[in-house]
Simulated assay, not measured.
Amino acid sequence: MDIHFRQANQNDAAAIWTILQHAILRRKNDGSTQWQDGYPNPEIINNDILKGAGYVLVQDQTIIGYTAVYFNYEPAYENIQGKWLTNNDFVVVHRIAIGESQIGKGFAKLILKYVEQVALEENIYSIKADTNYDNLPMLRIFESLGYQYCGEVFFRGSPRKAFEKILKP
């Protein structure tokens, strides 16, 4: 089984949007308010790709996962109610989503491991992320991978739990 992680391109947009639509529905079916307000949407995905921030997890030439990876940029993180572990360069990871047929196989964790590699290749030793209070699968993943809870940040008027992981060089 060939699995790799790469930057997304415009040809990937439809597959990414399909994955995200299923993830949006999963959040709704779980009773979550996360991603139930028209976000994310195809325009967000297009912007990620244009900015070089969209990444896909590919298994045997099929896109099975998506995330956005930004360097040193997330305005909402400037106003944390709490305290980040570091104030150095950081990678932000947003919109982790796994294809419907691949749920529960550890691929979200694998994406985060690949994001760690991307950060280290850029000599960045901090990853920051957030999720909704009721996104229990993502909260468990952050805990299992050593992310530390740092406080709350706000997106579109809603609080999110904010996490940071410090990487070893």
Score class of each variant (00 low, 15 high):
residue 82 G to D: 08
residue 47 N to H: 14
residue 111 I to T: 10
residue 33 T to R: 10
residue 66 Y to Q: 06
residue 49 I to L: 12
residue 70 Y to K: 12
residue 47 N to C: 04
residue 52 G to H: 04
residue 58 V to S: 07
residue 38 G to A: 13
residue 119 A to F: 14
residue 132 N to R: 05
residue 61 Q to G: 04
residue 93 V to R: 00
residue 126 S to P: 04
residue 87 N to P: 00
residue 128 K to T: 06
residue 43 E to Q: 15
residue 114 Y to M: 03
residue 62 T to R: 10
residue 126 S to W: 04
residue 128 K to E: 03
residue 30 D to K: 13
residue 28 K to N: 12
residue 45 I to G: 04
residue 67 T to A: 15
residue 77 Y to R: 10
residue 123 N to R: 11
residue 44 I to Q: 11
residue 132 N to D: 15
residue 132 N to M: 08
residue 31 G to M: 13
residue 114 Y to Q: 13
residue 70 Y to C: 03
residue 32 S to D: 13
residue 30 D to A: 15
residue 34 Q to H: 12
residue 54 G to A: 06
residue 69 V to R: 01
residue 111 I to P: 06
residue 134 D to N: 14
residue 48 D to Q: 09
residue 111 I to H: 07
residue 71 F to Q: 11
residue 57 L to H: 07
residue 118 V to N: 03
residue 55 Y to M: 11
residue 58 V to Y: 02
residue 56 V to F: 05
residue 134 D to R: 12
residue 47 N to A: 13
residue 61 Q to V: 13
residue 95 R to K: 07
residue 108 A to N: 10
residue 106 G to H: 04
residue 45 I to S: 07
residue 135 N to Q: 07
residue 114 Y to A: 02
residue 48 D to T: 07
residue 92 V to K: 00
residue 77 Y to E: 06
residue 88 N to P: 00
residue 86 T to E: 09
residue 51 K to V: 01
residue 30 D to F: 14
residue 26 R to H: 13
residue 131 T to S: 12
residue 62 T to A: 10
residue 89 D to C: 08
residue 108 A to H: 08
residue 131 T to R: 05
residue 96 I to Y: 03
residue 122 E to L: 14
residue 131 T to D: 03
residue 27 R to C: 15
residue 62 T to D: 12
residue 108 A to V: 13
residue 46 N to S: 15
residue 65 G to C: 12
residue 46 N to R: 14
residue 30 D to S: 15
residue 107 F to S: 01
residue 98 I to K: 02
residue 101 S to R: 12
residue 79 N to R: 08
residue 37 D to G: 06
residue 120 L to M: 13
residue 86 T to I: 05
residue 119 A to I: 15
residue 134 D to F: 09
residue 131 T to C: 12
residue 127 I to Q: 05
residue 124 I to P: 02
